[in-house]
Design a protein around this nucleic acid. Structure first.
Length: 621
DNA sequence: TTAGGGTTAG
């Protein structure tokens, strides 16, 4: 959009300024303000809100905001609520909290709008405690709050720690009957509960809402997606469609995201069909590319990417990470270079994507070159996640000394992910001594992250160090840590089936176990030997747990069920929430030979394409 | 003063 034409008479300065700020042209707006100021032209009060909005775009404009404040005082414009609210929100955005509180104190009798504006400003720009205590003060000595007060305050509840306060605010709403009369407040409560990680309470509010609108459905869908309950999101979506609620583009972004998590490509395809009438739509298109890439269909992801008329760095990053996850590092790097040639500037996230693509494909030199160019060519200071990627790259390739040197040279304190990457490399190259060193660090930084304990325990097990295994298991018990359950998903005829280890809950469970037994016999005949090192290490240490460890992993059940339900030549796609176990990895390799099938497994870190007895990861996982 | 959405690592 072009900037509007400058006005010829003074009376339209304020509307001109307004149009500049509404287009986000803050620099031009500020220049104009200063010119008006220099010319000493008489301003009307309507100039102040856009001028203050422009000021709040950068902290360096605080002195100018103070000048505008003084001007408002001199001209008595401060008696208008809209001038006060503009000043308050400018001060809050500029983090000039003292000035904001002082101004608020000076208002003789703040209206509900002034209270709400100040609360909303604090909610967005200051820690939650600020806006909450102002709301408490309002309850004591201010006017009654209205729905706008709540809509401004609730978005500040963003963490688990805010849950108790959120429940208290919820009670306030129930008391005045607002939750029933105002769907917008209910929807905001759903979102707030979701951000605090409590989908059960979010659902309760959703269920109690009488006038349920599309925003409410979308808020609940997104609540499930953000909290790793994609399965529930899809159920809710089916329910919504069944009662005739027409999805919009936001609904479809949520649904595509849920399909992405579950690997539910058939449902994703159906959602893709529904997106047609919203196109072109950048967030939707990005979600589609991501869905295909992470559901295992790179060519569909690429086809949609190629069709897009506008692509941002987010679009490119999505596809690069897709190629990376499938082990096509060279293509990922090629895309990154093509993006740069097309004049799209990579950001820190794009570098994470390309570095991880290099890592999964073992492209060490390429990764080192990208890592160097971040700072040299783009002035992007490597962050912890970039270091974690580089340690991963060097570590996987067996260049452990260089990985350690990199950690030692880091300007920032390494975090759990960095040491965790080194620990992962120690698993691949079975370096027990270095693993202990890395684990020692990681346990101090992230004492509750179970994954790292399991990793070290498995390293000891592979090295047949039974005492080491016992030590880690004891440490886990002492700290009250339990391994999260491994889950595998498989989508068949638009239904997602979920399996856990030793799961007997599936309706066709008996047949699945029989088929598994038959398959394992056939695999042994062609040379598959079950790797029991992890379970053996527990033998004599935790006799009662040996069975559990030796038990049937979820990916085995999902793969066998997939074999049973699909025809010859059909590809099987299984999604796992944790890393696929070494023994299952081996077993699936043999299965592709015996059953002449292609099997794709997406685990927590990447894709494994199994075909004719080999896996695309070639050990880089 | 005013509710819902997309990308990365381990």
């Amino acid at each position: 959009m072009n900037p509007p034409t400058e006005p010829s008479n003074r009376s339209s300065w304020s509307s001109y300024l307004q149009s500049l700020t509404s287009q986000g042209l803050f620099v031009d707006a500020l220049q104009l303000c200063r010119r008006i100021h220099l010319l000493d032209l008489p301003l009307d009060r309507f100039v102040l809100p856009p001028a203050l909005k422009a000021c709040s775009s950068s902290p360096s404009n605080l002195p100018f905001s103070l000048q505008l404040h003084a001007y408002a005082h001199k001209t008595s414009y401060l008696s208008f609520t809209f001038v006060i609210t503009s000043l308050l929100s400018a001060y809050v955005k500029l983090a000039a909290f003292k000035s904001a509180y002082k101004l608020f104190d000076e208002i003789p009798q703040p209206t509900v709008v002034a209270w709400s504006a100040f609360i909303a400003g604090l909610a967005r720009n200051a820690p939650f405690a600020h806006s909450l205590s102002l709301f408490k003060l309002m309850r004591v000595c201010g006017p009654d709050f209205n729905s706008a007060t709540m809509l401004g305050l609730l978005p500040a509840c963003t963490q688990q720690a805010h849950l108790c306060s959120l429940m208290a605010l919820h009670t306030c709403n129930v008391k005045v009957g607002m939750q029933v009369s105002e769907p917008s407040v209910s929807n905001c409560l759903v979102t707030a509960y979701a951000k605090c990680g409590n989908t059960a309470l979010a659902r309760q509010v959703f269920d109690e809402t009488l006038e349920r609108d599309l925003v409410g459905w979308n808020a609940m869908l997104s609540a499930y997606c953000q909290n790793g309950e994609a399965h529930r999101a899809l159920e809710l979506y089916q329910e919504m469609v069944a009662i005739g609620v027409e999805p919009d583009s936001v609904t479809l972004v949520c649904v595509l995201s849920a399909c992405t998590h579950l690997g539910a490509i058939a449902t994703g395809l159906e959602a893709h069909e529904r997106t047609k009438r919203f196109m072109p739509n950048l967030p939707l298109s990005n979600a589609i590319v991501n869905m295909y890439a992470r559901c295992g269909d790179l060519s569909m992801a690429r086809a949609h990417f190629d069709e897009m008329s506008i692509r941002t760095v987010v679009t490119w990053t999505t596809l690069i990470s897709g190629y990376g996850a499938h082990g096509h590092g060279a293509e990922g790097a090629y895309l990154f270079d093509a993006m740069v040639v097309g004049n799209i500037r990579p950001d820190a996230t794009a570098f994470v994507a390309v570095l991880s693509a290099c890592s999964h494909a073992g492209l060490v030199d390429k990764a080192l070159a990208y890592f160097a160019s971040m700072k040299q060519n783009y002035m992007i200071e490597p962050r912890l996640e970039h270091y974690a990627c580089m340690v991963d790259v060097l570590g996987r390739a067996g260049r452990l000394d260089e990985a350690i040197a990199l950690i030692e040279a880091m300007r920032v304190e390494p975090d759990g992910a960095v040491w965790g990457a080194l620990l992962g490399a120690c698993r691949i190259h079975l370096n027990v001594r270095l693993a202990e060193k890395a684990a020692n660090q990681v346990f101090q930084i992230e004492p509750n992250n179970v994954g790292y304990y399991v990793l070290l325990s498995n390293i000891y097990a592979s090295a047949k160090d039974h005492r080491g295994v016992a030590k880690i298991r004891a440490l886990m018990r002492e700290r009250g840590l339990k391994k999260p359950p491994g889950l595998s998903y498989i989508e068949l005829e638009r239904r997602v089936h979920v399996f856990m280890a030793d799961d007997h809950s599936h309706p066709r469970s008996e047949a699945i176990y029989k088929e598994l037994e038959r398959l394992e016999k056939a695999l042994e005949e062609v040379g598959y030997v079950r790797d029991t090192s992890v379970a053996d290490a527990l033998f004599g240490v935790e006799e009662e747990r040996r069975g559990e460890v030796l038990g049937v992993h979820s990916e085995r059940l999902a793969v066998v069920f997939g074999l049973m339900c699909t025809g010859m030549g059909e590809r099987i796609v299984v999604i796992k929430n944790l890393r696929v176990c070494g023994d299952c990895h081996e077993m699936i390799k043999f299965t592709t030979m015996v059953a002449s099938r292609e099997i794709v497994v997406r685990d927590a870190t990447r894709f494994h394409h199994f075909k004719q007895g080999a896996c695309s990861c070639r050990g880089y996982w």
